[in-house]
Design a binder for these strands. Structure first.
Lengths: 337, 337
DNA sequence: TTGTAGGCGTTATCAA
DNA sequence: TTGATAACGCCTACAA
C-alpha cells in the first residue's frame, strides 16, 4: 500500500494526496474528503523509510543505554520509560542502543547510518569518548549526567554534590558528628563516574564546613554488598551515628544489615539519601531522601534534544536538578549516650 | 556523505562501491582497497533509510512494552535488555513502542509505517486485539505469553500452570496440607492476563489432585500489598503452612510481613515460587523457586522472530518454558504441632 | 572487472 | 486547485 495506490483509487495525483495529508497546500474540501475515505478504508500510512530519505530526518530518537550485561538500576529504568513516553508524546520513536564504548556496532549504526535525528546518552563518564564522537559527527545529542568539560554540550543531571551536602547539613543540624557516606562502587569511582565523584566532593565539602568526622567506605552496587558494608561500618567505625547514601541498589542490603544487627533507625542510626521515591518509600522506616525525579528528567532530556535538533547551533542548555529532601522517618536526633 | 561521494573520491562508479561493500560481485583487490581507504577516512556508512527503501526491509525489530505509566517489573526489564542484546548480536536495532491498546499511535506507526521487519509483543492478554491487528497486517511477530487461541501464532512463554503445580507438589511432599496461592493482582486476573489465569489453573489442579486445602487471596503487584496480604492470610487462615507465589513484586512486602509477625521460614511457613533468580536470591531466607530465565526468553523470542521473518508462511513455532525449581532455603517439612 | 540506469515511496518544485 | 516530475541514497539487473 503506497501513496500512488491511494491516489489512483481517489482519482487524484500523488502530490495531491501528499498535500492533503501534510496540509502544506490547500486541497478542496471535497477532494480531501475523498482521499481521507480511501485512506481510512485501506489503513494507509506513509512509508517511514521513503519519508526519511526524502525529508532527511527520521522522526526517531536514539537512546544509548548501558550494556544489557549490567543490570539496570530502578532509576535508569524509570528514565528509559520516561524518555520513551515523552518521545511518543511528540510522535517520535525511540531506537535503543546498548553500548558502553565508542566502537560499539549499534552505536556506530545509529550515528553514521543516520538512523536517528538525535541521541540521548545515559551513564556518562567524566571522560567520555562517545561525546567527542557525536560532536565530530555533528549529530544533536543530550547527555544524562555530564563530563568533566561539559562546555558546548546539552545535558540534564542531578546535582549529587548539592544533595549529598544538604543531607550532611540536615544530619549535622540533628546533632550528628560522625557521618558515613555510602557511595557507589569503587569501580565506578575509578572509571570516572560523575555522580560518584560529585557525591564524594559534596560530602567532603559539607563535612569540612561543619567540622564533622566523615567516613568513606566503598560499596558495590548490590544488596549483598550493602549488607556487608553495614557490618564493616559497625565494626570499624562504631562512633558513626548517621549515614548518607546515593547507592540505591545497596539499600535493601543496608536494611537487612541494620535489622540483623538490631540497630534502631533513627534512634541509634539516622539515614538520609538520594533515591527514586519508590525506593525511599519501600525502605523501613521510610527513607528521608531527595527524590530523584526520573520521570521529569526523561521529559526534560527529550525537550532539550528537540530544541537542539530544531536549532543545532544555538547556545547549549543544561539542567542541574536538585530536588528537595523529603523528610520521612529515617532521620532523627543523634543519640546522646 | 553518500555512496556517490565515496565513488568519486575513489575514482570508481557507485555500483562498484556498493558491490565492494556487499561482496555480491567480485571487485579487484586493488579497487577494493582504494575504496576501503576512502570509506575509513570519511567514516562512511550506507544511509539506513535509503537502504530500507530499496531493500524493503529495515533491519529493525519492534518491541512493544507496557505503557510507561505501569512500572515495569524486574522480569520485564530483564526481558527488554535481553531482546535488545540478542538483536544487537544479529546487527539489528530495536524500536520501542510503549502501548497497551490497539489504537495506540506509536503501535500504529510501527506497523503501518513499515518501520520494522517484525515485532515482539510483551504482556499479552488472553484476548488481545493487537495480535489480530498484526495478523491482518501480515507483519511477522512473536508474542511473549500467549492468547486463549494461540494457533498460528509464534510465542514464547513460561508454563506457569506447570510451575505452580510443581511447587504445590513439592510442598505437599513436605507434608503441607493447607497451601495459599499469592497470585498477581485481581485487576490482571479480571483483564484476562494469562500467567495469572494459568497459575490459578495449575494451583487448583495440583491442590485437587493431592487432596489439599487451597487458599486464594488476591494481591496487588507491589510490596505494600504483599505485606498486607500476609497479615490477612495469618488472620483468616492460620492453618496455612505454605505459600506458593508468582507475584515477584509483592515479595519484598511478603518478607516484611513475615518478619513483622515473627514467623519463622521455613519452620513455621514454607514458601515456593516463580521468580527471576535475582529476586529469589535476594529473599531471606533464599527462595525455593523456579528461576524465570528472562535472558534466554529474550534470545528465544528474537530467534523465533528472525525465523518467521525469513519464512513468514512456515509453521509457527512456540516455546513453553518450565525451568526446574531450584531448592533453596525457604521450604521445609510442615510443622507438626 | 567495471559502468549505466531504473526504481523503491515520498515530498516539493514547477507548470497549468 | 491540481498534476507531472525530479530528487533523496541505495541496490542490482543489464550491458560492456
Amino acid at each position: 500500500m503506497n501513496i500512488g495506490e491511494i491516489a489512483r483509487r481517489a482519482g487524484v495525483s500523488r502530490s495531491t494526496v501528499s498535500y492533503a495529508l501534510s496540509g502544506r497546500r490547500s486541497v478542496s474540501a471535497q477532494t480531501k474528503q475523498r482521499i481521507q475515505a480511501v485512506i481510512d478504508e485501506l489503513g494507509y500510512r506513509p512509508n517511514a523509510a521513503a519519508r526519511a530519505l526524502k525529508e532527511g530526518r527520521t522522526r526517531t530518537l536514539g537512546l544509548v543505554i548501558p550494556p544489557a550485561s549490567l543490570r539496570l538500576t530502578d532509576m535508569q529504568l524509570g528514565f528509559v520509560a520516561s524518555v520513551v513516553e515523552a518521545a511518543a508524546h511528540a510522535d517520535l520513536d525511540v531506537l535503543l542502543s546498548p553500548s558502553g564504548g565508542d566502537h560499539d556496532r549499534s552505536f556506530e549504526r545509529l550515528i553514521s547510518g543516520r538512523r536517528v535525528d538525535g541521541i540521548i546518552l545515559m551513564e556518562i563518564r567524566l571522560e567520555d569518548e562517545r561525546v567527542t564522537r557525536l560532536q565530530q559527527e555533528g549529530l544533536p545529542f543530550v547527555t544524562i549526567g555530564h563530563t568533566a568539560h561539559p562546555q558546548g554540550v546539552c545535558w540534564v543531571d542531578i546535582d549529587y554534590a548539592e544533595l549529598v551536602a544538604r543531607s550532611v547539613h540536615h544530619l549535622a543540624d540533628l546533632g550528628h558528628r560522625s557521618i558515613a557516606l555510602l557511595n557507589r562502587s569503587a569501580e565506578l569511582v575509578a572509571a570516572g563516574y560523575g555522580p560518584a565523584h560529585r557525591a564524594q566532593a559534596g560530602f567532603a565539602e559539607a563535612v569540612g564546613r561543619r567540622g564533622l568526622r566523615g567516613i568513606e567506605l566503598p560499596c558495590a552496587d548490590d544488596p549483598a554488598a550493602g549488607e556487608e558494608w553495614f557490618e564493616q561500618l559497625r565494626e570499624r567505625h562504631p562512633e558513626v551515628t548517621a549515614i548518607t547514601t546515593i547507592n540505591e541498589a545497596a539499600l535493601p542490603g543496608l536494611q537487612r544489615g541494620i535489622e540483623r544487627l538490631h540497630v534502631a533507625v533513627p534512634r541509634e542510626m539516622s539515614i538520609a539519601g538520594v533515591a527514586a521515591r519508590h525506593w525511599a518509600e519501600g525502605f523501613r522506616p521510610q527513607l528521608t531522601a531527595a527524590d530523584v525525579p526520573t520521570g521529569e528528567m526523561g521529559a526534560h532530556a527529550v525537550e532539550l534534544l528537540l530544541e537542539r535538533i530544531a536549532a543545532p547551533t544555538g547556545a547549549p542548555r543544561h539542567l542541574l536538578l536538585a530536588p528537595p529532601i523529603s523528610l520521612r522517618d529515617s532521620t532523627g536526633p543523634a543519640r546522646t549516650d
